[in-house]
């Protein structure tokens, strides 16, 4: 899911090494190590997922995915992404705008805080929500009185995913908008365009590839998040299991075909993400 591509710099690096006159065994040695590593830790697991998923043939694969619990997990995963990705897109744009276009006290602190979900273990993030909204939590009593369920229910899963994925769009946009500057927006204002027109006609077209890139990463994480969601979900089959949780539950029940079939969906998502990411990186340039 979080694979890293090193296309550009690696190529340049290779060329300069040759010109520096390193012996060819260094070159081939490094290439072998890299390719071997990628094969062992990326390709082989992917192959295992597919082989195990289809171990009992196409029909067993299809049957596992058509199972109500698997279907429910997929739907919940989609719902989570559908809610969190748009919200974090709006939040990311707002945060990037505030940080790059205005001066205010505490700005650098805010910039640091945006990165918080990256530096905190996802399990801790999940736990925070349990401590806040759980039965014994700070707001637990109030929530019970008003008959609102958050922990071990869908709202908790969405909240935890929101928290985990909120840096992606903002982090992608902040350096981009900093580099862009605000002159074009000011030019639009002086030509009579209001705030919204300036945003949709000038800012958005300039940041669109970066924005899509951020949205893509945000989506990949929203669908693939395990740790935080695992803590708040309660693993209720057919109700609060997302796809990654469904993989775990099936595996623990020795339903290998079911586990790997669901895993293959996530792996497919990762590959699609990777391809789109490469296209966007190319477009951004």
């Amino acid at each position: 899911m979080n694979a890293i591509t090193y296309s550009g710099p690696a190529e340049q690096g290779a060329r300069s090494r040759i010109s520096l006159g390193d012996p060819s065994w260094v070159k081939w040695g490094l290439i072998t190590v890299t390719v071997g590593f990628i094969f062992l830790f990326l390709c082989l697991p992917l192959a295992v997922v597919l082989v195990e998923a289809f171990a009992k043939g196409w029909q067993a694969y299809g049957a596992e995915l058509a199972q109500p619990d698997a279907q429910a997990a997929m739907q919940l995963t989609l719902l989570t992404a559908l809610v969190t990705v748009p919200l974090n897109t709006v939040f990311g744009i707002a945060a990037a705008w505030a940080i790059t276009r205005f001066e205010f006290p505490g700005k650098s602190l805010l910039t640091t805080l945006i990165d918080l979900p990256f530096s905190v273990s996802p399990v801790i993030s999940g736990l925070i929500f349990v401590l806040l909204f759980g039965a014994q939590g700070w707001l637990g009593e109030w929530l019970r009185e008003h008959d609102i369920k958050i922990i071990f229910a869908v709202p908790g899963i969405i909240l935890a995913t929101l928290f985990i994925t909120f840096p992606f769009v903002a982090r992608e946009l902040i350096p981009l908008m900093q580099e862009m500057g605000s002159e074009e927006e000011e030019a639009a204002l002086s030509l009579g365009a209001g705030g919204w027109k300036t945003f949709f006609l000038i800012t958005l077209p300039n940041i669109k590839w970066g924005l899509l890139y951020g949205v893509l990463l945000c989506n990949a994480r929203a669908m693939g998040e395990f740790g935080a969601v695992s803590v708040v979900s309660g693993h209720i089959r057919g109700l609060t299991n997302t796809l990654p949780l469904h993989v775990e539950v099936s595996y623990n029940e020795y339903n290998f075909v079911g586990a790997f079939a669901s895993a293959s969906i996530l792996a497919g998502l990762a590959i699609v993400t990777l391809i789109l990411k490469s296209i966007l990186e190319w477009k951004k340039r």
């Binding site: 002159e183 074009e184 000011e186 030019a187 639009a188 204002l189 002086s190 030509l191 009579g192 365009a193 209001g194 006609l201 000038i202 077209p205 300039n206």
Partner: peptide
């Protein structure tokens, strides 16, 4: 600024880079 009716030419021109010359002027 958008209501003052003042034309402003920026030091680094601030042309809209995703628009053609025609669309820039028509903006």
């Amino acid at each position: 600024a958008s209501h003052r009716g003042i034309g402003f030419v920026f030091q680094h021109y601030a042309l809209f880079r995703h628009m053609t010359v025609f669309d820039n002027i028509a903006f």
